[in-house]
Amino acid sequence: MGVQAEIEFPVIEFRSADLERGTDGWHRLCKRVREACETFGCFEVAYKKISTEVREETFGLMKELIEVPVERKQKNASPMPYHGWVGPCNQVSLLYEGFGLGDASNYDSVKSFAQLMWPDGHPRFCNTIHTMATQIEELNKLIWLMLIDSYGLGEKWESVMINYKTLVRFMKYMAPPPGEYERGLFAHTDKPVSTIICDDHVSGLEIEVNDGQWIKLSLSPSSFCFVVGDPLKAWSNGRLKAVNHRVMMSGDKDRLSLAAFAIPVEGTIIKAPRELIDEQHPQLYKDFNFMDFFLFAFSDPAKHIDSGEQLQAFASLSPPISN
């Protein structure tokens, strides 16, 4: 799994035999997923339901997207942070370029995006990306259900499951100059509820496992990386870890990556289920509107707060306790 240091990063295979809810295999899987998210804040999931063919087709289409003229790329605009096109820049990285496609499991949304990028609307792009986004959304909901069941909330899963839409970002990280090891994306915790990442097998994604200790992940061809975001940490009353991660580039190959972010629908309040609050686990965060937090995280005041501390600054019910 290409991990530096002796830390064993969790790789969890989602076999169809274990995905029947309520079975012994399901409960074992739920426990492994929860423990990985509590310890690391992410894990590699081997999930063969999304075919290699769809993945390869997706990355082939992303290469076509990267070649679109800049004047068309600029039409992928949004008032929401990181929901539109971002070209290479000092604020993010000179190696980074990314596009945003909101509500990506909605075919009309994909079609509208494609019509901005290509005069003919590129039907093959629409069909493939819609399939990919829909299947990733299904995987994300499956992982959320595992977490809900693992915390004993299965009977009320419908009331604690967050209603969301999937924002897909298509990202390219350019290879750095020969012999260099350069930042492709700055270290941060995710502000959406959760993220599923897949790449074209050019490594670069790194996670912080201890203070200042980073490990590089190399996902296998049928794998994805599930990442806990700040709102999911708040939902779990601090049990789940929002992992600090970054992209660091070396070598002579560009890296393509697709990230699917869970963006709650407007008006969603993030709050911990009462079953996760007790004397041993007092409530850590106030209930908050997701969009208020999301916009705060990208505001001028928040720029002076470490990304991993923004949730604490915005929603903590008590000052941080020093170790």
Rank of each mutant, 00 (worst) to 15 (best):
N140K: 10
Q4C: 11
L295Q: 09
G87Q: 13
S236P: 05
V228H: 05
D190N: 11
R169N: 11
V228P: 07
F290C: 00
G100R: 01
A104V: 03
N106E: 13
P81D: 11
T166W: 02
N323Y: 09
N323T: 08
D300H: 13
N289R: 14
S322R: 12
S78E: 09
R274W: 09
G41W: 06
Q283C: 13
M132Y: 14
L19I: 06
A133T: 11
R239M: 08
Y82M: 15
E206F: 03
H281N: 12
N76Q: 06
W85V: 02
T166S: 12
I136V: 15
L219E: 00
Q312P: 07
H201Y: 12
E158N: 15
V54Y: 05
N237G: 08
A114E: 02
G121L: 01
F288M: 03
G25L: 12
F314C: 06
G229Q: 05
M1A: 11
K141T: 09
D292W: 04
G238C: 04
L19H: 11
G25H: 10
W26V: 00
D18F: 07
A260E: 00
R239F: 09
K63F: 08
R21P: 05
E208R: 08
R274S: 14
A175D: 10
A5K: 09
F170V: 12
F59W: 10
I148C: 11
C198Q: 12
D199G: 09
C126M: 02
G2L: 08
N106R: 10
V228F: 07
M117P: 04
D120P: 01
R169W: 01
I148F: 07
V193C: 10
A187W: 06
P123A: 03
G204D: 05
H281R: 03
H201R: 14
W85Y: 15
L256V: 02
C225T: 12
E64F: 10
E182C: 13
C126Y: 05
G184R: 01
S223E: 06
F226G: 02
W118N: 05
N106T: 09
A234Y: 02
I129N: 03
R15L: 11
D103G: 04
P177R: 14
M291S: 10
M161V: 06
L317G: 10
V11G: 03
E6Y: 11
I207T: 09
L116P: 04
K49S: 15
A77L: 11
V3E: 07
N210P: 01
T128K: 06
K286H: 15
K286E: 15
T23G: 08
I66V: 09
Y181S: 14
G184K: 02
S159E: 15
F298P: 09
A260D: 08
K233S: 05
L94Q: 12
P69W: 01
S220L: 14
W214S: 04
E275F: 01
K141L: 13
V92Q: 07
Y181P: 01
E180V: 06
L217I: 13
